[in-house]
Design a protein around this nucleic acid. Sequence first.
DNA 1: TTAGGGTTAG
Length: 528
Amino acid sequence: MRRLERTLLLKNYRQLCTLSKASFSPMLDTQGSDQARLYFDGNPPSRNILSCNRMLAAHVRNDQTPIAQDLFDQMLVKDVVSWNTMLTGLQKAKNPHGVNRCFLQMRRDGFRPSEYTISTVLNAFLGTAFNVLVSQIHALVVRLALSSSVFVGSALIKGYANTGDQIALSRVFDEIPMKDVSSSNALVSSYMELGCTHEAQRVFDVMLERNIVSWTSLVSGYINNKRINKARSVFDKMRERNVVSWTVMISGYVKNQKFMDALDLFLLMLKSGALPNHFTFSSVLDACAGCSSLIMGQQVHSSILKLGTPEDVIMSTSLVDMYAKCGDIEAAFCVFGFMPRKNLVTWNSIIGGSARHGLATRALDKFERMIKCGVRPDEVTFVNVLSACGHGGMVEKGEKLFNSMKAKFGIEPNVEHYACMVDLYARAGNLEEAEKLIQWMPFQPDVVIWVALLGACGLHSSLQLGEFAAKEIEKLRNDHPAIYSTLSKIHGERGVWDSVLEFRKIMKEKHIQKQIAGSWVESQYRIR
DNA sequence: TTAGGGTTAG
């Protein structure tokens, strides 16, 4: 060990020895983390409640909830701050069951919940099955005389919005004696969440104080209520914008499939001097994928690297997806390979990308690796692997995977999976098996299923079954372009030119156009 | 020493 390092370590230990004054937090936030824990573990007398709480808070801040939980369990003396800190850790770890258990234990042990407790617990329950407890927690709030807290009020407003109770949330807001900008913002976004855009706008209009979050809540609310133009007009009125407000508007365009508008706005954002973050990049990459602009996608990738944007699993997954959708599957594999963390969506992106590129073996290889890595597949994974088998003509493998869905992974096949199987059999020329599957499937076949069958009939020139499928499609959706173009193709192959002319005439009369197939290379030049 | 309001992927 070098002299300088020894000196630094010694300094760290000296700081730790003055426990009454020193906080563990800075040590845990830096390289001193392990030493701090070693010292802490080896010195039981030093474990007063304040130092324990500080240690606990530091672990929670560093997303080390299991370590925080160990420490919490070992603490012989706890106060309300210890409980609140532990609850915060469990909330950050997205563990509503744990929060519920911890909260119940806290009450059993006779601790009185504070404003911190209530707001943390309510936030942990948002969007989970535990939100049925919102009104019970509200009753507790009234009993504990915590209704006047703006923190509790904001959390209750969000909680009631989550359960769809508009009357309750407005009553909670009315009962806050000293309303602040955050509780008003919570009301705006809660009304927006319930689709009450007029009420949200009214609250916003009468707010005495508005900050950047108020404006962004309004923009975001209009986007979520499919009012993209209104959102843009509010966005344009903003006097100041930050990375969040820019990202909200950009992702709003992406959600509405307005990819070029999203990219234009991104360029405006860069011109304004605002720095994009991983949220922004994720949306922008989605926009590049949406309009198949590989050049733009590559430039965005360069910006991510140039700005030194910290690695984020969602942003990197968007990169993988962008490269796959823009036709550069090798770049997608490369980004995927370098990702330090991968989740289910990441694996699904690379498997789906491989399948779309006709790389059935690679898709299945990734699927095997995903299972080996301990990631459980979901419905999307199976749509991807089954379609890979379909494009690769791997009928037996597809059947095996389809049968394993329920038996091995507990996933009930849905209509999309059946459509993949129909496509798999039909493409392989086994039209009889495809028809049999349609007859026996536990759903009413939809347009996708019949179009899959019709497409295969076109591929294998099967007129009788093709006409049958076309009739079924017509029953569900009149004038589907696939009907006329496929039947015309089958008749043409059989030399029945009168029928071909008839179909073309109908298509012309009904203004039905055959869907134009385009390559990725071609699409690069369509952009700008 | 603990808490609230606006943003991302298949």
